[in-house]
Amino acid sequence: MIQLIDIHKSFKKQKVLDGLNLEIEDGKITVIIGRSGGGKSVLLKHIIGLIKPDSGQVIVDGDDIAAMNERQLNETRKKFGMLFQEAALFDSMNVEDNVAFPLREHTKKKEREILEIVKDRLQAVGLPGVEKKMPSELSGGMRKRVGLARAIALHPRIVLFDEPTTGLDPIMTEAIDKLIVDTQKMYNLTCIIISHDIKSALEMGDKVAMLYEGRIIEEGTPEKINNSENPILRQFLSGSLEGPISVI
């Protein structure tokens, strides 16, 4: 279980997270929704220790990430996989080396075995046979799938997704969503997804949480979120310009 307790974070004078609390259950998909530039990515980066909070605790399996030194942090990070917004594939390496990277880094497996796993993971994300391609030769959707293959290469328990479907067409969005759900079931993963895609969030999430002005203002099952009376959430769900969230 992951718990975020009273997280505060500011960049220079701008407050991004303001006393945020959230619990994330094991083996479930939790979707965090919120406005663009509202601190969702910052929140996600706190969970994996890329950003440290000004105050507050990030508890993963009972240990506080915010208080860890680099070695402890690296041990904890092996439980995680992460799919970045633009996939963040290493563009100096081909697809095979990208997916093999965490395996070569953290296991003593033989090269033959590693290539087997790479093949298996690429199969799992529906991209067999692209091993020798360079990231620049792939489309946006393909890169994200390779990114997912790399994220699950080491069999992590927790996978973080930073806006997995931003910038994709509706069909590819659907395909990636389905892939995430399938992968989650296949490996019994804890998935944390940040998104501003309401439709996807409500379809995929076991739990949905809304981040607004540095706090979680509403959380619960998709039904609960969908029926919420909270005016901020209502405005966000309907995508209206009228309401408590001032846009222009």
Binding site: N74, R77, F80, A88, P102, E105, H106
Partner: peptide, 21 residues
């Protein structure tokens, strides 16, 4: 230029996430 591009496209963050310094 190369490391800068890696930084802005989150490839350096990806290394951290994969526990590779």
């Amino acid at each position: 230029a190369e490391l800068g591009t890696m930084k802005v496209t989150e490839q350096i963050d990806a290394l951290y996430v994969m526990a590779a310094n």
